[in-house]
């Protein structure tokens, strides 16, 4: 299945990419599978998405966690803690 992944703010700059399409096996997965796939690329991915890195995620424009399900065509965003207001 294909999932569009977006990056914002500091993470967009660290990764040097705004968005990409990831191809995952199967028709259903959890956000954790996407994060695992990205960490395997090594640094800066592994460092910025490490267990204590404190990044945030959204699935289809709603805040999500590692156990949020994703399916083909979903939009996943990975970004630093928000700082608006």
């Amino acid at each position: 299945m294909k999932v569009k992944v977006l990056y914002f703010a500091r993470l967009r700059e660290k990764f040097g990419v705004e968005s990409e399409v990831l191809d995952l096996p199967g028709e259903h997965a959890y956000v954790a599978a996407i994060v695992d796939m990205l960490r395997k690329r090594g640094d800066p991915w592994a460092k910025e998405l490490g267990l204590d890195a404190g990044y945030r995620m959204a699935v289809n424009q709603t805040l999500a966690g590692l156990v949020t399900p994703v399916q083909n065509g979903d939009e996943v965003a990975i970004f630093p803690p928000v700082t608006g207001g």
């Binding site: 914002f8 703010a9 959204a58 805040l63 970004f79 630093p80 803690p81 928000v82 700082t83 608006g84």
Partner: peptide, 23 residues
């Protein structure tokens, strides 16, 4: 809730250069 949930990010321009604001 806006400060902790809405997807905005601030980047400051300082005399020492630009930096992302930490939550």
């Amino acid at each position: 809730f806006l400060k902790t949930r809405a997807p905005f990010w601030k980047k400051e321009g300082t005399p020492q250069g630009d930096r992302w604001v930490e939550a």
